[in-house]
Amino acid sequence: MLTLTRELHDAILAHARRDHPDEACGIIAGPAGSDRPERFVPMLNAARSPTFYEFDSGDLLRLYRDLDDRDEEPVVIYHSHTATEAYPSRTDISYAGEPGAHYVLVSTAECGNDEGPFSFRSFRIVDGEVTEEEVRIVDTYGD
């Protein structure tokens, strides 16, 4: 199960709508080992494409160094599908390189840049195997 604050959920959704029809991407970092997404880090889609996303390789190195310095890890890795459903594609599965992360997919196929229906789903992708998980939205994580 992915537990996520309303604020972070809305930040991902807003990024996806803003970048539509291109795919939006980014991560939510959290303390290593905590499984708690805390810090929203939107990334540039270096592919600037409606059917592909990719972190720029220089951005990727800086991101991981920053995570290391802060003793964080990518708890959530998110991206949008802008014409198809919010389910990992074969490409998504073949690239999935963080077995500990929650892979969040947002579909903006219906809402485009505007308010309106969207789909927000979360998956584990481990050794090529996709498992959907429940997304629980909370006001705060509490103690």
């Binding site: 991407c25 592919a47 059917t51 592909f52 972190f55 990727l60 990992p88 490409t91």
Partner: peptide, 12 residues
Amino acid sequence: VTILPAVAGGAR
């Protein structure tokens, strides 16, 4: 030398 998994994917 640093090795990182590419973060990429997409609808296609």
